[in-house]
């Protein structure tokens, strides 16, 4: 299951430097989410999130506060630096973190593979035509590469046990 493309160690952290972390693999997928919740949480037009197994994420220093948000169908738990307020990752489904890509030291490393929830995209924002764009969500089985699906299902099986 582990491919050479997966192997990576990338460091990141919050704005004040208290929180440092490492990703020990490349993300399963990366998306730009234009939903209204992500706009509020970022203060921007969208979020850029890297979907990755929790087991591939290492907290190197600092602590994270967390908050369960009632919004969204299933809710989510956002994790942030209590000192400076930088949000680092969010849990939307068990076993995975959605890491904010631009908190990586190499901020341009992982461009989004897709744009989702563009039905609430800010009207002035233009998107390129190089990656798929979905007005709401998408069909994972159809739209993900096979190796991403394999990684996804491996985690789903492990948390279901």
């Amino acid at each position: 299951m582990v491919t050479t493309e997966r192997e990576a160690r990338e460091l990141g952290g919050c704005a004040c430097g208290a929180v440092r972390y490492a990703l020990n693999a490349a993300p399963i997928t990366v998306y730009a989410c234009h939903c209204t919740d992500c706009q509020r949480l970022t203060g921007s037009a969208f979020i850029v999130s890297a979907w990755i197994e929790k087991t591939e994420v290492e907290l190197l220093s600092g602590t994270l506060d967390s908050c369960r948000l009632a919004t969204g169908e299933r809710g989510s738990v956002v994790h942030f630096c209590p000192q400076c307020g930088t949000s680092i990752w969010t849990e939307y489904s068990p076993g995975f973190w959605f890491v904010r890509v631009t908190t990586l030291d190499r901020q341009t490393l992982y461009p989004p593979h897709m744009h989702i929830w563009t039905q609430s995209k800010l009207p002035w924002l233009q998107l390129g035509d190089d990656v798929p764009i979905f007005e709401t969500y998408y069909d994972r089985e159809r739209d993900w590469p096979a190796d991403s699906l394999a990684r996804y299902h491996a985690v789903v099986r492990s948390v279901a046990v």
Binding site: C14, A32, L41, T42, I47, T86, Q107
Partner: peptide, 15 residues
Amino acid sequence: CTDCQTISGSAFVLN
């Protein structure tokens, strides 16, 4: 700017 990218979790911040 790189600081706004870190703080926002997005490609830019809207201020």
